[in-house]
Amino acid sequence: MPFAVPVVDIGAYVQQDGTPEQRAIVAAAIDEACRTVGFIQVIGHGVPTALTNGLAEAIDEFFGLNLQVKKAYRTPPEVNRGYTAPKSESLSLSLGYESSSRMKDFFEAFNVGLAKSDFPNLSVDSKHYPENVWPSTEHAPMFKHRVQSYFVEAGRVARTMTRIFADALSLPPDFFEAHTDHSIDVLRMNNYALPEGTEVRLDGKDDLMGMGAHTDFGIVTVLWADQVRGLQVLDAQGSWHDVSPTRGALLINLGDLTARWTNERWTSTLHRVKPPILENGTVERRRSAAYFHDGNAEALITTIPSTIAEGQAPLYDPITVGDHIAAKLGGSRAGRRNEAGRETQRVLAATG
């Protein structure tokens, strides 16, 4: 069968009048997609078009600024907030299968997320919940409002997905809620564009990568992307496939923690971004925004017993969300090769 990312209407979980029978159909479709592809296009998610349009305008507003202005909003590598300049990350290092620590991914990004101040009644560590760094209204007057508005909706979709996951895995309805009531959630807005005037070779021999091959770190990712090609997903046979979202759809993919939880009944799918090279030797600009729903920092991820076949042992040792995320970020942002164990071996096997 040709490779395809399934489209699933999750409206039965979004609308109040969804029946148990309708939800069971949705949960079964999500289980099938998670077992076979690891990526899903969801419609019926309820995010207004006006908000996604506003997000796209916010991305344009900030990334259209002068590079020196944008660099004023950088943070140290260990702080997953603010601006990331081109070629200051290498996502493949987060999986430990790239031997060089040279940062080569040419995307630029801006990160915002849930902060310590969002949980005034909890004793959370600012290491995992750093405060946001927002552009000034002088530089980007509408950025903060538009991004915050979308952030709330993307978080709702992420939590809707985990409710569906619970049904698909025959778990208690609140299983994921117990691990995510103060989740490490981050929205990363990405801009894939080379500096004006940059030309690349049309024969494909340039060492050019928008975002290196990687799996996402946490539980589930909600991705908005424009219609420009570039996102590629690796199938079970080791071939890469272009993926562009259906108009109005959001892309959903699983993170490593879900693979750990389900003993790889569901796996985090390897993906990368290679924006297309145009005939004039330039790269077509691409925009995306990934909402990472990663779980509470101190939550311990242990294999769900029902996903372990009789006579089989868990494939992963228990790990806290915070320790797992820190190791991954140490690879991608700080240039340290992450010794990811089984995750690395799974990727090496898939890529040959």
Rank of each mutant, 00 (worst) to 15 (best):
T52S: 10
L278F: 00
P141V: 03
K205L: 08
E298D: 15
G255Y: 02
N121T: 07
D9R: 03
N111V: 13
F176R: 02
Y129W: 11
A24E: 07
F106N: 09
Y83L: 08
D185K: 02
G352S: 12
S100C: 11
L122E: 14
Q15H: 13
L300N: 11
R81W: 00
K144S: 15
I304D: 15
R333I: 01
A72Y: 05
T344L: 00
I43M: 03
R265Y: 14
T262A: 03
V26H: 08
I301A: 04
Y73L: 01
T221M: 02
Q345E: 14
Y13G: 13
E199H: 13
P195V: 15
A297L: 05
E279T: 12
L95Y: 01
H179N: 05
A349S: 08
E298L: 01
A28P: 03
F110K: 13
T307G: 00
T307C: 07
K274T: 15
G155Y: 01
A12W: 03
Q227L: 08
M189P: 06
M161W: 10
G113V: 14
V228L: 08
G212R: 10
A166G: 15
A334N: 08
L67Q: 13
D174Y: 01
V200T: 14
G38N: 06
E310M: 15
P195M: 06
H271C: 02
Q41F: 11
L187I: 00
F175H: 14
A115N: 07
V112T: 05
Q68Y: 07
R188K: 10
H139S: 08
V69R: 14
A72Q: 12
S288W: 02
T269S: 09
Q41C: 05
V157E: 01
Q41E: 11
R346E: 09
Q227T: 13
E310H: 14
K205V: 08
R346T: 08
P318F: 02
F217A: 13
T160F: 03
T49D: 12
S123P: 05
T160Y: 05
E310K: 09
V14H: 01
T198Y: 04
S126E: 15
N253R: 04
F143K: 06
A50S: 07
N191Y: 00
H128F: 11
K205R: 15
F176Y: 09
I164E: 00
K71I: 02
A115V: 12
Q22F: 08
N263E: 04
E310A: 09
